[in-house]
């Protein structure tokens, strides 16, 4: 390895180790939390105003298009949170940083919530548009599998008494589930599905009118800020719970 990449690697590694210190992480979390909470509230107010009131109806879905502003960001976050959870799990497996395991653990229920919102709003949109609540096509089925992966991950954490073993088992499940992410994203291109192909992230550019793209992006920002806020909150709770259990064990042994 030449000098430059090695130096860059050492720098990221040292930064990673600094933030892997729970005390530093807690301090950073405390400083970030009010900002992300404020941003979340603001973006939701503006985003929902545009999504529900100040945006045009669609030429064939009419007002049903407004479900899209809740559904699509939830789907993005369902995938994004899983990618983040899997990355943290990989870091936890390789470098054995408990903070990485705890970040993945803290993210899982939020990601499961996003996936559930995606499935439910999708059904509510499918009934008036397609004429059915649910079909077993590749897109819908792979998202349902994503939901079960989240649930299985959360269940595995509860299945062990030793947090180290629980973290390892859960991390392996999270990493195995990563194969589902490209399947979800490209299912609509690889196979015939009832679900339509991507509208925003396509090689030809967005196929959504700018007047509808704006509320969608505002809502996506709101979802992201919501995730950061709740993740910080849950991560703090996880760190404190871990400390409390260490203290309890120390007292029991003395």
């Amino acid at each position: 390895m030449s000098g430059l990449p090695r130096a860059a690697l050492a720098a990221t590694s040292s930064a990673m180790h600094r933030f892997a210190n729970p005390t530093v992480a807690l301090r950073l979390a405390d400083r970030l939390m009010p900002w992300s909470a404020f941003l979340c509230a603001g973006l939701f107010m503006v985003g929902l105003y545009y999504a529900l009131i100040a945006s045009p109806i669609d030429y064939q879905q009419r007002d049903t298009v407004r479900i899209m502003y809740v559904h699509v960001p939830a789907a993005w976050m369902a995938l994004g949170v899983y990618a983040m959870m899997a990355t943290a799990s990989a870091v936890g497996l390789v470098w054995r940083h408990p903070l990485a395991d705890l970040s993945a653990k803290a993210a899982a229920p939020i990601g499961a919530g996003f996936t559930l919102i995606c499935l439910v709003t999708g059904a509510l949109w499918g009934q008036p548009t397609w004429g059915t609540w649910w079909v077993w096509d590749a897109r819908l089925t792979s998202v349902l599998i994503l939901f079960f992966l989240y649930l299985g991950y959360m269940a595995l954490w509860q299945a062990y008494d030793d947090p180290g073993r629980a973290a390892r088992a859960a991390a392996i499940l999270a990493l195995v589930g990563v194969v589902n992410l490209p399947v979800i994203k490209f299912s609509v291109d690889w196979w015939n599905t009832l679900h339509q192909p991507a509208s925003v992230f396509t090689l030809q550019g967005p196929k959504i009118d700018p007047s509808m793209l704006k509320p969608l992006m505002l809502m996506a920002g709101a979802y992201l800020a919501f995730f950061v806020t709740v993740l910080i909150y849950r991560l703090k709770a996880e760190i404190l719970a871990r400390r409390a259990s260490v203290l309890r064990r120390a007292r029991a042994e003395s």
Binding site: P56, I57, D58, Y59, Q60, Q61, V65, M68, T129, W130, G131, T132, V135, L194, Q196, P197, A198, S199, T202, K207, I208, D209, S211, M212
Partner: peptide
């Protein structure tokens, strides 16, 4: 019979 929806979204005027 199920209707398939395409990936285009636009207001009626457009």
């Amino acid at each position: 019979i199920l209707a398939k929806h395409d990936e285009n979204y636009m207001p009626p005027e457009v």
